Amino acid sequence: MNENIQELGFFDVVETRRSVRIFDQESPFDHQVVQKCLEAATLAPNSSNLQLWEFYRIPESSALKKPLDQLCMKQKAASTARELVVVVTRRDKWKIRTKANQEYIKETYKNSPESKQKKALAYYGKLIPRLYSKYPLWSFLKQLIAWFVGLKRPMIREVSETDIRVSVHKSAALAGMTFMYAMKAEGYDTCPMEGMDSLRVKKLLNLPKGAEISMIIGCGKGLPDGIYGKRFRVPNEETIFIK
Rank of each mutant, 00 (worst) to 15 (best):
S47T: 05
C191L: 12
D197K: 10
F179V: 01
C37G: 03
D163M: 05
Y109F: 15
G9L: 11
L131A: 13
K36F: 12
L52Y: 00
K243G: 02
G176F: 03
C37W: 06
C37A: 09
D189P: 01
G222I: 04
E39R: 08
N46C: 10
R231S: 15
P208G: 13
K202R: 13
R82A: 05
Q35M: 12
E114V: 12
P208Q: 15
T42R: 04
E54F: 07
E161M: 06
Q51D: 05
L127S: 07
P113Q: 11
K116N: 07
A41R: 03
A175T: 00
E3V: 05
L71C: 00
R130G: 15
V166W: 07
S112T: 10
P129M: 08
D225R: 15
E212M: 07
Y132C: 15
K95P: 03
L127N: 10
P113F: 15
G226P: 01
L204M: 07
R21W: 05
N206L: 12
M183G: 00
R82D: 06
A44R: 05
E107R: 13
T16H: 07
E7S: 11
R157A: 07
S61R: 07
P192S: 09
R17Q: 07
K184N: 03
Y123R: 10
E39S: 02
F179L: 08
W147P: 00
L151W: 09
V166H: 12
V86S: 01
K110G: 02
V86H: 04
A63L: 15
V14I: 15
Y188D: 00
Q117C: 12
K110T: 10
G125V: 14
V168C: 02
V87N: 02
A146T: 08
V34A: 08
D197M: 12
T16Q: 09
A211F: 03
V166F: 09
D24Y: 08
V166C: 09
D24Q: 11
N236R: 11
L144H: 10
A211E: 04
Q32F: 07
K65I: 05
S27K: 08
D189W: 03
G220F: 00
C191S: 07
L8E: 04
T108F: 12
R21K: 11
A122E: 14
Q102C: 06
Q102S: 01
E186V: 03
K74Y: 11
F23T: 00
T239N: 09
R90L: 06
A146H: 13
Y124H: 12
P192T: 04
M193D: 03
L223A: 00
I216M: 05
G9D: 12
N49L: 08
L84A: 02
N236V: 13
L38Y: 10
K36R: 14
A182D: 01
M196W: 08
E54Y: 07
F10R: 02
Q32C: 07
R17A: 04
N4F: 06
A185T: 00
F179N: 01
G218P: 01
E212P: 02
N236S: 06
I145F: 11
R91Y: 03
R97I: 08
F10A: 12
T16D: 03
A44G: 04
S160E: 03
L199F: 07
L68T: 00
A185L: 01
Q102Y: 11
M180L: 11
A173M: 10
